[in-house]
Design a protein around this nucleic acid. Structure first.
Length: 739
DNA sequence: AGCACGCCGACT
DNA sequence: GTCGGCGTGCTC
C-alpha cells in the first residue's frame, strides 16, 4: 500500500494516519537494516535513496526490502529526513548487494554504501541557463552587437559566456541585447560528461584468428542472457579489439557496458584506443576522480546517459540503469581484490552481477588466474583462445640460462651468456631490458665483523640499502635513515657488506662491463616522481638509452620499439616467498616482462637466469604455453585454492603480535571446523596493512564445503575467540556456487 | 564506520 | 589540579 492511499484512508475515516515504517540500510556494520518512519507526504519504495538521522548525524541510506523489526515501538522511530530525487536502486542491484554481503560476510549496509558513494550527486544536476535569440534588431546597432547577431540563429540556444566568447565581445553586450528583449532565457539540460560512443564509428579492426574469436563473443551477446567467457590470449594478440566488438554489439542493443580494469591500466592510452574505435571516450571511474566529475559520471550512469564506463573495481557497485555487459580486463590482476572494509574480488563479483542481471560477462587475460583457467577447463567459462600475436608484433624467443652451468663472475649476478647477448644487442643499435624485481642496492646489509643485520625498528623486516640516495630503507613501512658509516653494533668502520642484488647493484655491474653504454635505472622510488618517470620512459622509447634496468614498473604498458632483448636477472625470485600463489604470480609477472620485447616486429630474445630450469613455471614461460604451468603437478597448498578440489578463504586478523595471530589460529583449529588447514602468514605477506602502520597477520583457512565453511566463518566472526584486533573474512574462492 | 563517554599519564 | 590518550559501546 502506498503512502498516499494510507493517508487518504486516514483522512476519510478521521483516524490518525497509520505511520508507515520502512527498513533502511544505513552505512554501519550492523547485521541488518534499521527501521524508520516515513513522514506524511513523502513517497519511498524499496531502493529509494534517503537521508536519515543516525545518532547525532545525518547519513545516506537505502530503503530496503522485507519486514521491519516489530519489537520496536513505531511511535519512537525517527522519521526519514529526505528522499533524494534519483532513481531507486533496482531489485537486481538490491539482490546483488545482499548476495555480496552474504558471500563476503560483510554488513549489507557497508556494501550498499559502495553503490551510493557519490552523495552530492543524489540531487539532479541544476539546469544551466541558456539564451535563445527570439528575433528582432537592437535599438542601436554597434559593431559588437552586429558580431553577436552574426553568431545566433533562432534554433540553437547559447550560454551567455559562450556567446560572448564566440562573438569576441564582453558579456555586457549580451546583457544589453537581452534587456532589449532580443533573447529569452531557456533552461538547458547540463551537458553530458562524455559523448555517446558510436558502435559503427570505425570498422572493427580485427583480422585472422581475432575474427573467429570476436564472432563467438558477439554471438553470446546477441543470444542474450547470462554467459561467462574467458578470452585467453598472449600480449599483442588483439584481445582488446575482440572485446570491443562485444561492446559494439551491446551498444547496438542500447544497453550499458562496464569495462573493469586494474587501476593502473586506466591510462589515457586505453581511453584513446577506445575513442579511436567508438568516437568518444568512455566514462571513467576510479579513486582520484575530482568530486565534480565523479558526481556527473555517477548521475550519467544512473540515468543511462553514460553508456560505457571504464572503471577500477569500485565501479562494479555503480547502480547502472541498464547494464548489459561486463568486461574484466587483466582478470588475473590482484588489484581486483579489495582488502579493506568489505573484502571482495571484483572479478568474481562481476560474474555474480552478470548472473543476477542475466547478461554476459567476459574475463580477459594473457595469463589467466588459476581459478579462471580451471573454470574454463571445467566448461563453466566459455574459453576463447587467441594463440598468436598479430600484425608485425612477434613474440620473443625465450631461453633459460641455467646459472649452475653458466655462473656469473665472483661478486656479479649476470651470467656470461646474458652479458654476451647485451653486447650484441648494443652492437645492433638496439635496446636491452634487465628486469629485477628488487629496488635499491642490496636486499640485505650486514656487518662483516659482528654479523649485525640492519632491521626496521617498526616492523622487523630487513632494511634495504639505497646507494644512490645514501639511505637504508624499509620496503614494508617506508621507514628510512641515512646509511651509517660504522656498524651500530660493534662500531667497526667500512665493514658493511651488501648481500644479494638490487637494481642499483645490477646497474653498477652493467656499467663495469659496458662503460660506454647509456644505462637507465627505472624503479618506483626514482627521485623526481611521476614526471621524471614519464620523461625517462619517453627517452627510452626514442632510443636514448642502450640498457634499461628496471623493477616491476617497466612491465606495464609502454612500448619500446627498439627493445629486442629482455634479461630476467633472477627468474626464481618470488617462487618461494610463502604465498600459495607464488608460482602463479611469478608466471604472470615474467610473462608480462618478456612480452615487452618484439612489439614492432624486430626479432627479439628473452633470457631468463634461473637455478631451477626444470621448474614448471620456467617450462611454461619458455614454451609460451600457460597450460604447461596449469596442467602440472599441483602443490598441496595450491590444491586448496583450486575449485574442483577445495575452497580457500583467507581470514585477516589484525593483531599487534604474531603471538596473538597464532592464538587465534589455535582457537580455530580447536573449534573442529570444516577446514583442512590453517596457516599464519606474517606481516611481510600483508604489506598493505603494514603501510597503515598496523601489523596485520593473515590466516589462510582451507576447507571444502562452501555452506559449512560460510557458517563456520560467520560464527567465527560474530563469536570468535577473543584476541586483540579485528577479524575480517575474505572468501577467496571462485564464485562457481551460483553458476 | 563515526562519535561520545570514560578512565589513567604529562603538563599549563 | 586539567588536557588528552584510545578502549568500549551505541546508533532505528
Amino acid at each position: 500500500m502506498s503512502a498516499d492511499s494510507t493517508n487518504l484512508f486516514g483522512a476519510l475515516f478521521d483516524t490518525p494516519p497509520v505511520r508507515q515504517v520502512v527498513p533502511v540500510l544505513v552505512p554501519l556494520p550492523a547485521p541488518g537494516p534499521y527501521s524508520y518512519a516515513v513522514p506524511e507526504g513523502m513517497h519511498v519504495e524499496a531502493g529509494s535513496v534517503v537521508q536519515v538521522p543516525l545518532g547525532p548525524r545525518q547519513v545516506i541510506g537505502v530503503v530496503w526490502d522485507g519486514d521491519n523489526d516489530d519489537k520496536l515501538d513505531p511511535k519512537k522511530l525517527r522519521p526519514i529526513t529526505l528522499a533524494f530525487d534519483c532513481p531507486p536502486l533496482s531489485a537486481e542491484m538490491r539482490r546483488f548487494i545482499e548476495w555480496v554481503a552474504g558471500y563476503t560476510l560483510s554488513p549489507p549496509g557497508l556494501v550498499a554504501r559502495m553503490a551510493i558513494r557519490a552523495p552530492a550527486a543524489l540531487e539532479p544536476e541544476p539546469m544551466i541557463e541558456g539564451l535563445r535569440y527570439v528575433g528582432g534588431q537592437p535599438e542601436r546597432m554597434t559593431p559588437a552587437r552586429a558580431r553577436v547577431l552574426q553568431q545566433v540563429d533562432e534554433d540553437l540556444p547559447w550560454t551567455r559566456m559562450g556567446l560572448a566568447h564566440a562573438a569576441g565581445v564582453s558579456t555586457s553586450v549580451i546583457d544589453g541585447l537581452t534587456q532589449q528583449g532580443l533573447f529569452e532565457t531557456v533552461f538547458l539540460p547540463p551537458p553530458p560528461v562524455v559523448a555517446k560512443p558510436d558502435p559503427d564509428y570505425t570498422a572493427p579492426r580485427i583480422e585472422g584468428p581475432q575474427k573467429e574469436a570476436a564472432r563467438e563473443i558477439v554471438d553470446l551477446v546477441k543470444q542474450g542472457g547470462f554467459s561467462s567467457s574467458l578470452i585467453d590470449g598472449v600480449t599483442g594478440s588483439g584481445k582488446t579489439e575482440v572485446y570491443f566488438e562485444a561492446i559494439a554489439e551491446t551498444l547496438r542493443q542500447r544497453k550499458q557496458v562496464l569495462i573493469l580494469l586494474p587501476e593502473i591500466a586506466l591510462t589515457s592510452s586505453f581511453l584513446e584506443r577506445f575513442q579511436d574505435r567508438f568516437g568518444a571516450k568512455p566514462g571513467e571511474w576510479h579513486s582520484d576522480l575530482s568530486p565534480r566529475i565523479r558526481e556527473k559520471v555517477w548521475r550519467g550512469i544512473v540515468t543511462g546517459e553514460v553508456q560505457v564506463v571504464a572503471g577500477a573495481r569500485s565501479a562494479l557497485f555503480l547502480p547502472f540503469e541498464n547494464l548489459g555487459l561486463i568486461i574484466v580486463d587483466e582478470e588475473h590482476d590482484p588489484a581486483y581484490k579489495q582488502e579493506d572494509r568489505v573484502f571482495y574480488n571484483a572479478r568474481d563479483m562481476a560474474v555474480v552481477r552478470a548472473r543476477i542481471g542475466d547478461f554476459p560477462v567476459v574475463l580477459v587475460s594473457a595469463t589467466p588466474s588459476v581459478e579462471s583457467q580451471v573454470n574454463a577447463q571445467a566448461g563453466r567459462y566459455h574459453l576463447v583462445h587467441l594463440p598468436t600475436r598479430f600484425g608485425e608484433a612477434a613474440l620473443p624467443d625465450l631461453h633459460l640460462v641455467d646459472m649452475r652451468r653458466h655462473p656469473p663472475e665472483r661478486g656479479g649476478f649476470l651470467s656470461p651468456v646474458l652479458l654476451r647477448a647485451i653486447g650484441k644487442t648494443i652492437e645492433r643499435g638496439q635496446q636491452s631490458l634487465l628486469f629485477l624485481n628488487r629496488r635499491g642496492y642490496a636486499p640485505l646489509t650486514l656487518c662483516r665483523v659482528c654479523g649485525h643485520r640492519f632491521q626496521c625498528r617498526q616492523c622487523s623486516s630487513w632494511l634495504v640499502e639505497h646507494r644512490f640516495r645514501n639511505q637504508i630503507q624499509c620496503h614494508q613501512c617506508g621507514y628510512s635513515e641515512p646509511t651509517p658509516e660504522a656498524c651500530p653494533e660493534c662500531g667497526t668502520f667500512d665493514h658493511l657488506v651488501a648481500c644479494g642484488p638490487g637494481v642499483e647493484r645490477i646497474a653498477e655491474e652493467v656499467e663495469r662491463h659496458f662503460p660506454d653504454a647509456r644505462t637507465i635505472v627505472m624503479s618506483s622510488d626514482l627521485l623526481g616522481g611521476v614526471k621524471r618517470l614519464r620523461l625517462e620512459l619517453e627517452a627510452i622509447a626514442r632510443g636514448d638509452a642502450d640498457i634499461v634496468i628496471g623493477t616491476q614498473l617497466v612491465a606495464k604498458g609502454h612500448n619500446f620499439p627498439l627493445m629486442t632483448l629482455v634479461g630476467i636477472v633472477d627468474a626464481d625470485l618470488g617462487l618461494a616467498n610463502g604465498d600459495p600463489r607464488a608460482a602463479e604470480r611469478t608466471f604472470q609477472l615474467l610473462n608480462q616482462v618478456t612480452g615487452r620485447a618484439g612489439r614492432t616486429g624486430l626479432k627479439s630474445h628473452g633470457l631468463l637466469q634461473t637455478y631451477q630450469p626444470q621448474h614448471p613455471v620456467m617450462q611454461a614461460i619458455v614454451s609460451g604455453d600457460p597450460g604447461a604451468f596449469y596442467e602440472r603437478e599441483i602443490t598441496e597448498r595450491e590444491r586448496a585454492i583450486l575449485p574442483p578440489f577445495g575452497r580457500l578463504a583467507s581470514v585477516i586478523v589484525s593483531a599487534e603480535t604474531r603471538a596473538d595471530a597464532e592464538a587465534h589460529a589455535r582457537a580455530l583449529r580447536a573449534a573442529a571446523p570444516p577446514v583442512s588447514g590453517i596457516s599464519v602468514l606474517g606481516p611481510a605477506e600483508a604489506p598493505l596493512a603494514l603501510v597503515r602502520g598496523r601489523h596485520r597477520f593473515r590466516l589462510l583457512v582451507h576447507g571444502r564445503r562452501t555452506s559449512e565453511m560460510q557458517d563456520f566463518l560467520k560464527k567465527m566472526v560474530s563469536q570468535g575467540p577473543k584476541v586483540r584486533g579485528t577479524v575480517h573474512v575474505q572468501i577467496d574462492i571462485d564464485p562457481q556456487s551460483f553458476l
